[in-house]
Design a protein around this nucleic acid. Structure first.
Lengths: 237, 237
DNA sequence: ACCTGAACACCGTTCAAGT
DNA sequence: ACCTGAACACCGTTCAAGT
């Protein structure tokens, strides 16, 4: 059970501010991972840090600013996990995989940042890395950007979807999870032949397999376009 | 300006219940499209229908039940727009495109249902349609299901992402939108050469192009796998 | 049988007041 | 300069009371 950090009562003004943006970020990241999105409230953060809830507003303009800063922290942690290699395909896989893993570790944050631009330094770095990696495939600028967005948006949106699901109340999540066997496994074969023919497989696919399939499809698409350009730049499929 | 429907004051008991689940769904769909996610509250629905807010609970167990019913309504409207054709690729495109368009029309609902299983009749029908369409490509059951999920999750998650973005307060949306030209267009070329080399293209890509690129990539992946199986069922790349 | 309205336990945020 | 605490305008939901 977490005890709120009580600062020493003898603290004088020489100790500096009781609170800092960095301390709030640390607490927010920890409480979000530990207790989910319901705990990521301004009031709860105050409790966690042993200060009045509204002290928060001296360090962030509003909750959105906090959320974007947290999003950039997640990207920063993602960058630490990436292993750039010679092969651009393997590098793309590493970036997408690292982002997927980190966002799933912090679903409470991922579910609110997956449709946002953080504007932070980590975001700039990962965008630069993705763009320069895709550029190595040899596509013209417009297509490099199109497939950068395809990889980035597919990664962010699929992890956002997984995160939103994980953030559900346990009872709702269990209900949705059971639907594939409960509802879809019991449908009349006359009306739903394809569903019945695939009932077992439907209940068994894993979210990560789906993610891999989509990312692989996009990487293969880049490969195919690059091959077409190598065969002759005027071949627009 | 919408006037709340005031029922005639002379209404007697022969008129039946003042409220019905269908009337609530109609009002919710309309208010969600017209005014966005901030308006999709139990209190607001009561106002819109001219009844006490809590009358809602006589027709739905909780707000989640309403949200799932709305999600199924969107799927039902999507089904009406789909044109099944001979070519399974074109049919998949039609389904994905119709779902994308309908979810973007109701971002307030899409942003909360994109990670859910509605369990409704429309959902079953669209799952059956997708599965039977992909099965026509000639993949074994496990891969049919894998690519069904790839198409379905890519469609839902990308529209969920777009919906979440559209649901932002106008000021936040404008800030995020401007980031590509404001922040990413002004980064030092020494540190961010790839971003600077693609600045214009980054500001110009459209969300629908990205969606098309991802869906096309997945359909091409199905095609490639099907071709491999036609060439000899034992070829697992 | 159905609707009402007070109430509960929450949110994010503002602002005057304290030290 | 920084933190506090009352207050405002909201949420979803419960429950006893009305008709």
């Amino acid at each position: 059970m977490p005890t709120p950090r009580i600062r020493p009562s003898g603290r004088g003004r020489t100790d500096g501010p009781a609170l800092s943006a960095a301390a709030i970020l640390d607490a927010a990241l920890e409480v979000a991972e530990r207790e989910g999105p319901g705990a990521l409230t301004v009031r709860r953060l105050g409790l966690e840090l042993g200060v009045d809830p509204t002290a928060f507003y001296r360090h962030f303009r509003d909750k959105d600013e906090l959320v974007l800063a947290l999003g950039d922290r997640i990207i920063a942690m993602t960058l630490e996990k990436i292993e750039p290699v010679d092969d651009w395909r393997a590098t793309l896989r590493s970036i997408a995989g690292a982002a997927y893993a980190m966002n799933r570790r912090y679903p409470a944050i991922a579910s609110v940042t997956f449709a946002r631009v953080t504007g932070g330094v980590a975001e700039r770095e990962i965008v630069e890395m993705l763009l320069s990696t895709i550029a190595r495939a040899g596509l013209p600028p417009a297509e490099t950007v199109l497939y950068y967005r395809a990889i980035a948006d597919a990664t962010l949106s699929l992890t956002g979807q997984a995160a939103a699901f994980e953030n559900l109340e346990p009872s709702l999540r269990a209900k949705d999870e059971a639907a594939w066997s409960q509802i879809y496994g019991a449908l009349p074969e006359a009306d739903y032949p394809a569903i019945r023919a695939h009932a077992r497989e439907l209940a068994e696919v894993r979210e990560t397999q789906v993610f891999d399939a989509v990312i692989t499809a996009v990487i293969d698409a880049i490969d195919a376009r690059a091959a077409a350009y190598r065969a002759g730049g005027d071949e627009h499929d």
